[in-house]
Simulated scan of single mutants.
Amino acid sequence: MNVNPVSTGSDPGLRFFKSSYSDGAGNNCVEVALARQVHIRDSKDKTRPYVQMQPATWSSFVTWV
Rank of each mutant, 00 (worst) to 15 (best):
P49R: 01
F16P: 02
T47S: 15
A33M: 09
V38R: 01
Q54E: 12
S43H: 03
N27H: 11
T8N: 12
A35T: 11
T57Q: 13
V51I: 02
Q52P: 07
Y21D: 09
N2G: 04
V3M: 03
D11C: 09
P12V: 10
A35K: 06
S10I: 07
G24L: 08
Y50T: 00
S60R: 14
V30M: 10
S60C: 08
F16W: 15
K18P: 04
G13Q: 11
A35H: 12
S22A: 15
M53E: 07
M53F: 13
V62H: 06
S10W: 00
A33I: 06
G26E: 08
V3E: 01
S43T: 10
S60T: 09
Q54R: 10
H39E: 01
A56Y: 14
Q37R: 13
C29W: 02
N27L: 05
H39T: 06
D11I: 02
L14M: 10
T57I: 01
V32E: 11
P55V: 00
A33W: 13
H39G: 03
R36K: 13
V38Q: 13
K46R: 15
K44T: 02
Q54V: 09
S22D: 05
M1K: 11
G24W: 06
D11M: 09
D23R: 13
K46F: 03
L14W: 00
P55F: 06
W64F: 07
Q37P: 02
S10D: 12
V3K: 00
T63P: 01
A25L: 03
R41H: 11
N28F: 02
Y50M: 14
S7T: 08
W64R: 14
W64S: 15
D23C: 08
A33C: 01
D11V: 08
A33R: 00
G13Y: 02
A56V: 09
G26R: 13
T57V: 11
D45P: 06
A33L: 06
V30I: 15
W58N: 10
G13A: 11
S22K: 07
S7V: 01
H39I: 03
S60D: 12
G13M: 00
V30L: 11
S22C: 00
G9W: 01
T57M: 07
D45G: 10
W64H: 14
N28L: 05
F17T: 06
K46M: 07
A56G: 10
G24M: 04
A35C: 09
V62S: 10
F16I: 08
R48C: 05
E31Y: 01
R36N: 14
D42F: 05
S60Q: 08
P12W: 06
V62M: 07
F17W: 14
F61T: 09
G24P: 10
K18I: 14
S60H: 07
N28G: 15
V30Y: 05
N27D: 04
V65W: 02
P55M: 09
S7I: 07
V62K: 06
R48E: 03
G13C: 05
V38T: 10
G13E: 12
N28S: 11
N4D: 13
V3H: 03
K44Q: 13
V38N: 11
R36W: 00
I40V: 15
P5L: 07
K44N: 04
V6D: 08
D45L: 04
V6I: 12
L34P: 01
D11R: 14
S19L: 05
A25F: 02
P55I: 04
T63I: 15
G26D: 04
R41F: 13
D23N: 15
Y50A: 04
S22W: 04
P49T: 12
S22E: 07
R48H: 08
S43C: 03
